[in-house]
């Protein structure tokens, strides 16, 4: 069964690019437009992994990660954050909140897939 990955990003183009890359590599994708939207969906649906941006309106990535780890349904899933090189401290905050790994923007599709394979095993 194809693994289901959620991509949470307020940028529609990034979501499209991520979704396109994931689907091409045989994953199923569910999209969320911000942290709040993502958390609502994750409370209702089991996914195999979460890819989240850190800067988002209506609950940012850190809040989302904390929310997922405090929840039940998807409490233990791998979470990869999309960060930029300018906020190394945010990366630390994300790790402390319970993120599994990160990928630095900008990234190429094959880099994204490499990171996903790494955390999904």
């Amino acid at each position: 069964m194809a693994k289901l990955i959620m991509t949470a990003d307020d940028s529609a183009s990034v979501r499209q690019m991520v979704a396109f890359t994931l689907k091409q590599n045989g994953y199923d994708v569910v999209e969320a437009v911000d942290g709040r939207d993502a958390l609502n969906k994750l409370n209702a649906q089991k996914v195999d992994m979460l890819l989240t941006d850190l800067n988002m309106p209506n609950m940012d990535g850190i809040g989302l990660i904390k929310g997922v780890r405090a929840g039940t349904l998807n409490k233990f899933i791998p979470i990869v954050m999309l960060t930029t090189e300018s906020n190394d401290t945010r990366k630390g905050e994300g790790k402390a909140a319970g993120a599994t790994g990160w990928i630095v923007k900008p990234f190429k599709p094959e880099q994204l897939i490499a990171v996903i394979k790494k955390v999904l095993g």
């Binding site: 992994m49 409490k75 791998p78 955390v119 095993g121």
Partner: peptide
């Protein structure tokens, strides 16, 4: 580490 979604086996 397990709670943060890392699988040591991978």
């Amino acid at each position: 580490i397990l709670m943060c979604g890392t699988n040591p086996i991978s």
